[in-house]
């Protein structure tokens, strides 16, 4: 009897805390790592932030594929700097995630074992130089639409990381668009290369904004916690509306015969997305899923002796200092 009363008391208390917590977020106050938070909030944030971090570091690979082959020195340094930024962004995000009581190593394990997801778009191959343009323009474009609202998300460390990410990311999309622009002003062969890249990256970029609202399981809760400000479908529409005129300026054709401006809605109507392909890639059967994960895993496994050596060396220096002090 007594036990039961206690339990009810505990439950009541938790419920109370949760109400205070939700009210805090509704008032636009931030949640900081040591604040009380519902377990679900913690878990959801670990999942989303780590997924985001994984996407940054896996995203280094398809572009890294072209660093050695970049066609000019100017392009080479820009691409290197961009891929390096992605490592930085991964680092900021892993750090934000770690404040929730999980280590970077545990998060890596989840990535390497396939337990954690990352953005599926990075499982597509980068086949020509124009893909560097298309990724910067479309993939970073879609990412920015996703990310800008996160600068105001409720979890402080995530919001702060995103402010830094968004600030740094602003050159990435411009870099991509400039590559496309140069190709489209170039020879017929270059223009075809640009069109081919758009053809291959357009639909995956649309999918990148997530499943349709009726299929998306997390949206409502995420809205409440300001992990999302708009639904996937709204973001997708925004992306299409802003990208189509950019394609027009390039003189490229969006590979969607159903794409048409709708005077009534003020938006572009667009064709059906091949969600079977989306789920195939999400489930690990894209062209490069295996390569991407094994590249990450190799980097980590082959680096173990290096990380160990650094720790061993640091410990020896501490010991030496102590001996010095003792003498």
């Amino acid at each position: 009897m007594k036990n039961k009363e206690n339990m009810n008391e505990n439950e009541k208390q938790t419920k109370n805390l949760e109400e205070i917590f939700e009210a805090k977020i509704a008032r636009d106050e931030k949640i900081e790592p040591k604040d009380w938070m519902p377990e679900k909030y913690r878990k959801t944030h670990i999942r989303q932030i780590s997924q985001h971090a994984h996407s940054e570091i896996v995203g280094m690979l398809p572009e890294g594929n072209w660093i050695t082959r970049a066609p000019s020195l100017r392009r080479k340094v820009a691409l290197l700097a961009k891929v390096q930024d992605e490592a930085g962004h991964g680092l900021y995000l892993y750090s934000a995630c770690e404040t929730l009581g999980i280590s970077r190593e545990e998060l890596y394990d989840q990535l390497h074992s396939g337990k954690a997801k990352y953005s599926s778009i990075f499982n597509y191959p980068t086949l020509t130089w124009a893909d560097m343009g298309a990724i910067g323009w479309l993939v970073d474009g879609a990412a920015i639409i996703n990310q800008v609202p996160l600068c105001n998300t409720s979890f402080g460390p995530y919001a702060r990381a995103m402010v830094r990410v968004c600030k740094e990311e602003s050159f990435h999309q411009r870099q991509g668009y400039e590559i496309m622009m140069t190709l489209c002003n170039g020879t017929q062969e270059q223009k075809e290369m640009a069109q081919d890249a758009l053809n291959r990256w357009w639909w995956p970029s649309l999918m990148m904004l997530g499943p349709t609202d009726d299929e998306s399981i997390h949206t409502e809760q995420s809205m409440k916690w300001k992990l999302k400000r708009k639904t996937n479908d709204e973001l997708r529409q925004q992306f299409i509306d802003q990208t189509v005129p950019q394609a027009d300026i390039l003189g490229l054709t969006i590979p969607d015969p159903d794409l048409k401006y709708n005077n009534d809605t003020g938006h572009y109507d667009f064709g059906k997305i091949d969600w079977d392909e989306f789920w195939q890639v999400v489930k690990g059967h894209g062209m490069c899923n295996k390569e991407r994960i094994s590249a990450r895993k190799n980097a980590w496994d082959n680096g173990e002796w290096v990380r160990d050596a650094a720790v061993a060396y640091a410990e020896k220096q501490v010991e030496k200092d102590e001996v010095k002090k003792a003498v």
């Binding site: 680092l91 900021y92 750090s95 770690e98 970077r104 702060r160 990381a161 830094r164 990380r307 650094a310 720790v311 060396y313 640091a314 220096q317």
Partner: peptide, 11 residues
């Protein structure tokens, strides 16, 4: 500014 991993202060 943020955090990072390192084996010692110099690193």
């Amino acid at each position: 500014f943020g955090s990072l991993r390192a084996a010692d202060a110099e690193m």
